[in-house]
């Protein structure tokens, strides 16, 4: 669905004010966005028509699950672009913020994920530069799954590794289980038996605990 830049600004601002819980008051929104409360009311009516917010008189606007997801994706894009501009292009943070604010509306999900990989933020986490982490973290784009939860024939791309023991992480890395690489699940019999996983041209058997340390962004086909 196409949503205008202006509406997207509202969504992101409601998210910033509520972090996905409770309502944003019309007056607060008006302050933040530098517009009149009347225009806020107008816009909120339009957004609730789109199904992104529910509006209760005097109490304010609340994001619907769909609106929350949309707003989070936008905010993440904003952060990714801001990081890209400051870290890679060496812009100062004020300029970066202004430019990222424009870019967040036009960049595609796919490009944002690619940029995210370049700057090294795990794709499924909400951005670490958020002032407060979103409580219900739904990431940008697809959600990653643990490798042991994938089924025969599933494919995907490793998003990150998560394990308390650094030695195990090192072992997985050295075997080629590295973020950014494609994996494919081969035959496996029982649910809790070892997974047969092809990464690159090599095939490995990983038991389910080992596989649970590898997070994969499943691909659609």
């Amino acid at each position: 669905m196409m949503v205008s830049d202006n509406r997207e600004d509202y969504l992101i601002e409601i998210l910033r004010l509520t972090e996905g819980e409770g309502r944003a008051k019309t007056n607060d929104l008006a302050d933040k966005l530098g517009v009149s409360p009347a225009s806020v009311s107008e816009m909120i009516k339009a957004l609730s028509g789109d199904g992104f917010v529910t509006y209760t008189k005097y109490r304010g606007a609340e994001l619907t699950p769909e609106g929350l997801n949309y707003a989070k994706q936008l905010r993440k894009k904003h952060h990714i672009m801001e990081r890209f501009l400051t870290d890679v292009l060496d812009l100062d943070s004020d300029t970066a913020h202004v430019e990222a604010h424009k870019m967040e509306h036009v960049i595609s999900d796919d490009s944002a994920i690619r940029i995210c990989r370049i700057i090294g933020t795990p794709v499924d986490d909400d951005c670490s530069s958020c002032e407060s982490q979103c409580r219900a973290a739904t990431g940008l784009g697809r959600i990653s799954k643990k490798l042991n939860e994938m089924r025969q024939g599933d494919r995907g791309c490793i998003s990150h590794l998560k394990c308390e023991d650094p030695k195990t992480v090192k072992k997985l890395i050295s075997m080629g289980f590295v973020p950014g690489r494609d994996v494919c699940i081969g035959s496996n019999g029982s649910r809790s038996g070892p997974k047969v996983v092809t990464v690159g041209n090599a095939t490995f058997a990983l038991d389910s605990e080992m596989a649970s340390f590898v997070y994969v962004e499943p691909s659609d086909d």
Partner: peptide, 13 residues
């Protein structure tokens, strides 16, 4: 949000 050894391996691959 990623350890440096993973980042290095990622780049190598």
């Amino acid at each position: 949000n990623e350890t440096s050894d993973i980042a290095i391996a990622r780049e190598r691959y």
